[in-house]
């Protein structure tokens, strides 16, 4: 029971991470497209400035919870996906530094360097996370000792690549909507226009991903036994359907909420389909890492649950306060204060 609760928490943490860091990874990816001038690019960076670091902690927490609640899964996943995780890490490092370093010098080459770091450092995590999760849904080549028989190229299979593309597009749309929310004038219109352009491409990719999920993964097994659970697929698809009108009407908070619902819904759909596996093995179903054979002791899971129940609501409260205080429509003033990016 505790294992199942923690599996659910694990899935929710990833969903929250993708929703929150998703928009700033997406916006970073779109930086060269949306930011024509230095002022545009500074507006884009400041639009996510107060939030990106707090958002990234959800990744640290998702990783930490994998370690704490399912240490065997953490060990196998992180060592098996060694190279993609290192690439993810390098990308997140240059991205975090880009935020802070770019504005320190008023030299076009210096700024162009960090703009490049921002774009690559945002695109690559979106792609790699998509590839990694698609491969987990599909099953990893794990033997009964939990040793990964493959390399980076094993992961770049058709389904993995569609998953990577899906994440890049989901985040890019989510980011364009965020920029539209926080800006007025030309940049706002450009963001809405790009959201409109990404939308149909995302639609095709989403359809392709859902269709390919049937032959390529075992995710549907749980849904065939409990068809009621299919609501987890219906919710994100409905969000996606409603999103079109909201983008056409100028991409406000409602559009962002629908985009968040789409990302969170798809994540929970995938994770629920995995259960009771965390890392299914494509070599031998018996070698799969499950919620039960990878979990921590009951004592650890109980203490961690207590900590989570006490402190996660507090985290949510102050992050909500943070978003309410700092997500106003930006003006030139937001670029002129002492600490602006």
């Amino acid at each position: 029971m505790l294992e199942t609760i923690w599996f659910l928490v694990w899935g929710i943490l990833w969903a929250v991470y993708f929703v929150l860091d998703g928009f700033d990874l997406g916006l970073g990816t779109l930086l060269p497209i949306l930011g024509k001038t230095d002022t545009d690019r500074r507006t884009i960076l400041n639009a996510m400035g107060p939030f990106w670091d707090g958002n990234e902690v959800w990744l640290i927490t998702a990783g930490g919870v994998t370690f704490a609640a399912f240490p065997t899964a953490y060990a196998i996943m992180f060592s098996g996906l060694y190279t993609p995780l290192m690439l993810l890490l390098l990308a997140l490092i240059i991205r975090g530094v880009a935020f802070e370093f770019r504005h320190l010098r008023d030299c076009p080459y210096w700024r162009a360097l960090w703009d490049g770091a921002m774009t690559i450092g945002s695109f690559l995590p979106a792609l790699l996370l998509g590839v990694a999760f698609a491969n987990i849904f599909q099953g990893l080549p794990l033997d009964s000792q939990g040793i990964f028989h493959g390399n980076l190229l094993t992961l770049l299979n058709p389904y993995g690549l569609v998953g990577g593309l899906l994440f890049v597009l989901l985040f890019a749309l989510h980011g364009a909507i965020w920029l539209a929310l926080r800006t007025e004038g030309e940049l706002h219109h450009r963001a809405v226009a790009w959201a409109g352009r990404i939308y149909p491409i995302l639609g095709v990719t989403l359809l392709g991903f859902v269709v390919l999920t049937v032959p390529f993964t075992g995710l549907l097994r749980n849904y065939l036994t409990n068809p009621l659970l299919l609501i987890l697929l219906i919710i994100p698809l409905t969000c996606f359907g409603l999103l079109r009108r909201e983008i056409q009407q100028g991409a406000g908070w409602k559009a962002w909420g629908l985009s968040a619902g789409l990302i969170a819904g798809l994540t929970l759909f995938g994770v629920t389909g995995l259960y009771p596996n965390i890392l299914p093995s494509s070599l031998d179903p018996a070698a799969s890492v499950t919620v039960f054979n990878a979990a921590s002791s009951t004592k650890t899971l109980s203490i961690m649950l207590l900590v989570a129940l006490l402190f996660v609501p507090i985290v949510v409260l102050y992050q909500v306060w943070m978003y309410r205080t700092f997500s106003h429509k930006m003006t030139s003033h937001d670029l002129t204060h002492d600490n602006a990016y």
Partner: peptide
């Protein structure tokens, strides 16, 4: 060890 790292992130 994992739970201590997870607590660090949360707290």
């Amino acid at each position: 060890f994992g739970s201590l790292l997870a607590i660090e992130a949360t707290l």
